[in-house]
Every structure is written in C-alpha cells, then in structure tokens.
C-alpha cells in the first residue's frame, strides 16, 4: 500500500486539513501502515454478505411532526466565535 504525495494532499484538502511538509513522510508512513493493516480484510470471504452499518437490526423510529424547540439563539451564540445581527460570520463567500 503506497500513498502518493498528491493523494495525501487531496485527502487533506477533502478533510480541510493541512499537512506540514516536515511531518508528511512520518504521516505517510503511518497511514500506509494502517492501510496495510486493512489489506488483511482480503482474507475474509464476503461474497454475498450485506454490509452491517449498525450492530442492531433495528429500524428507524419516527418522530411526530410537532415543534418542540424554542428560540435559544442567545445561548447558542454566546459561545460562537463571530456573530452579528444574529448571523454567524465567515470570510466572504463568493458563489
């Protein structure tokens, strides 16, 4: 299992992380070892086996369509890094 530098960059971009060039080789090595571990899975015959997304074979409960939440904007925005006029602020987004 080998990860190209470009691939690593792309993963970091998708995850919105930045890889420090100094740490890249160690990180690449660690990731490759973990992915190498994953290759052991090839030993399992999973032909016709459904993926198990959840350990219990339960089905989704449904919630009645009622409004149960009240306005807690002040409490929520008290812990926000940047707000104005009730809005969360981010650097200008261009569509």
């Amino acid at each position: 299992m080998s990860l190209g530098a470009e691939q690593l960059e792309r993963l970091a971009a998708l995850a919105r992380l930045r890889i420090d060039p100094g740490e890249a080789p160690a990180l690449k090595d660690a990731l490759e070892r973990i992915l190498g571990l994953a290759e052991e899975l090839a030993a399992a015959d999973t032909t016709g086996i459904d993926p198990l997304a959840n350990p219990l074979d339960a089905v989704q409960p449904l919630r009645a369509d009622t409004v149960t939440e009240s306005n807690r904007r002040d409490a929520f925005q008290a812990i926000a890094p940047a707000v104005e006029d009730g809005l969360y602020l981010v650097p200008r987004v261009v569509e």
């Binding site: 690593l8 970091a12 998708l14 990731l31 992915l35 899975l41 399992a44 999973t46």
Partner: peptide
C-alpha cells in the same frame, strides 16, 4: 485522513464496504 480515504471514490468498496461486510 484514514477515514476520508476509506470513504473516497474508488476506495469505498475495497475499504469501507469490505470492512462493514466483515
């Protein structure tokens, strides 16, 4: 990063799906 890789296009079946089948 590992998780992003396991779910990414082209690797999903070999990694994530295979893991869930296992």
């Amino acid at each position: 990063l590992i998780g992003t890789y396991a779910l990414s296009a082209g690797y999903y079946d070999a990694y994530y799906k295979k893991a869930q089948q296992t």
